[in-house]
Nucleic acid binder design. Structure first.
Lengths: 301, 301
DNA sequence: CCGTAAGGGATAGAAAATCTAATGCCTGTT
DNA sequence: AACAGGCATTAGATTTTCTATCCCTTACGG
């Protein structure tokens, strides 16, 4: 069968642009830049030998040709979407169970998962947040992600995220009358500790050239997130780990008052029992999450 | 609008494979290799989380899921094809007029044009074959392609194809009792000349280290193709230029008895009057033909 | 029972398509 | 006049896709 079909992605771009009468908004829908849409449509027009849009300084107008072309395409794409959706209804949903700490889940995993759901709509996730390191890897858990120094005994896994450790505090604290210009200045503030990482502050001061700093006073919290919340509300200065605090820094809840950062010896490991066959779903997830973590890595550095 | 549509090219691959129940034949239809189809479909299956085919050692069987999925897609693609076709009907056809020599037209241009017609079905071509170099570039001609040593005065253009010059003859001639092992042996055979390139043979013998070879005897023809036809029918040995003889060599009508080849000083130039605005169609053609010529270059070397 | 051909799978590296980021241009608006 | 919103253009980066190979399995014919 010889059907002549123009490049499908160009058609998709056209269809979106025509619906919105705007390259910019089409680009948003398709998650690309305006330039990409512009190029796709230019290519399509060249291929067909017809102008599809009249470019006006403000927005677009479909040409006659474009108006005739659009409805068929919209219908076709809707048909594809409908077929796909009905396929997905028939299919049994697959379940993926991941266990991790509540801090990591809320600050890193849950936010990035949006993309996973989009990509694999047929997979349902069960996220088990458990903060004390569990003894057993029960049958019904596919994967575990936890802060470790190495891959645990009897497990296979990968180091998902390395960590940088740096002081963080509320932006308000910086203008509170006790400026923070060098490591010593931190001692003028209350230090916030995380019980799970009791040595963080002394390690950080050591690496900052102040091995004898008296850094044992201050508040102690049970989980990273609680400590960070304390920092956000201005209770003092905490030591943040990049996977957890990156977002809080991005959106301005926290600031990093000093340049100096410590490369953590551990990191977040993803692991599962050696000798247990991984489900397809789990493999899919591992591939995907590894990519996510690499992107994270880029944007951090 | 948020429609979830799997990668469209993967869908196209699936649709073709499902119709043919074969990756190999789908690959033929799509002009790619079997491996490409295999990968696309694998990706689609991973994305959907469903097996679409049962792979049997001999051919494929659609799974239930695949069977449910196929008809919707086929219909959608047919709809796209139909919409596109009707667009093309409405549109006025564009005309592109090219003038060139009959040899070049028949041996190089016409064969490759197939791809152009496929790509730009709305463009009609008028090909004017004229063998003596015309004085004027008349109004109704968009582009000219001719063998030249440089871009003609008053013209803009590009060097489309360089040429290699090499002896060619019928394969039968090689087994005719007068073997051709070194340049001298050619003098035992009848030489075939092209009037347009009277110096070819002496230049070739000079570059082959035989400046004094007596190469003026033999038959003379008016056009390259005629001379090549003479060679094919065993009348003697001709000097072929790569753009013209490549195909004849490929399909075995001609063979190259000696390694030694001469790089021609000229080549096929595509040109048009300076200061004449090129039509869109002509620009399209130039882009396309330049690509073609580059491919040609690769496959020659 | 082996040899061969036909069909699909895997993989690494190459090629091509696509996207981004930056910049420019135009025009209606303040 | 300065600005902002929207599209075009470009080179270079990135991602996707394809090819080339090699492998494995099965059917079939001697």
């Amino acid at each position: 069968m010889l059907r002549k079909i123009p490049p499908l992605n160009a058609l998709k771009a056209f269809e979106a642009a025509a619906r919105h009468c705007s390259f910019v908004r089409a680009a948003e829908e398709l998650n690309v830049t305006q330039a990409a849409v512009s190029q796709q449509i230019k290519q399509l027009e060249a291929r067909l030998g017809v102008e599809l849009f009249q470019r006006k300084p403000r927005g677009l107008i479909l040409t006659d040709a474009g108006q005739h072309y659009l409805p068929g395409l919209t219908q076709a794409f809707e048909m594809i979407a409908a077929s796909t959706a009905s396929l997905e209804q028939d299919r049994e949903y697959q379940l993926l169970t991941i266990r991790t700490s509540s801090s990591f889940a809320s600050q890193w995993l849950v936010p990035v998962m949006t993309d996973f759901f989009q990509r694999y709509p047929h997979i349902d996730l069960r996220l088990s947040a458990q903060d004390d390191d569990p003894r057993f890897f029960s049958e019904d858990i596919d994967l575990e992600i936890r802060h470790k120094h190495r891959c645990p005994e009897g497990m296979d896994g990968i180091l998902l995220l390395k960590e940088k450790i740096m002081p963080v505090c509320s932006p308000r604290l910086l203008h509170s009358g006790k400026p923070i210009r060098q490591p010593e200045d931190l001692l003028q503030h209350r230090l916030l500790h995380i019980n799970y990482y009791p040595e963080d502050w002394s390690a950080w001061f050591r690496s900052a050239g102040l091995p004898d700093a008296d850094c044992h006073r201050g508040f102690r919290y049970d989980q990273s997130v609680l400590t960070m919340q304390a920092a956000i509300s201005g209770q003092g200065v905490a030591l943040g780990r990049s996977p957890i605090v990156n977002n809080m820094i991005m959106n301005g809840q926290l600031v990093v008052p000093l340049e100096h950062q410590l490369l953590g010896e551990g990191g977040y490991w993803l692991y599962y029992p050696i000798n247990r066959p991984l489900s397809d779903t789990a493999c899919l997830f591992i591939d995907w999450v590894r990519q996510q973590s690499q992107q994270d890595h880029w944007s951090q550095s």
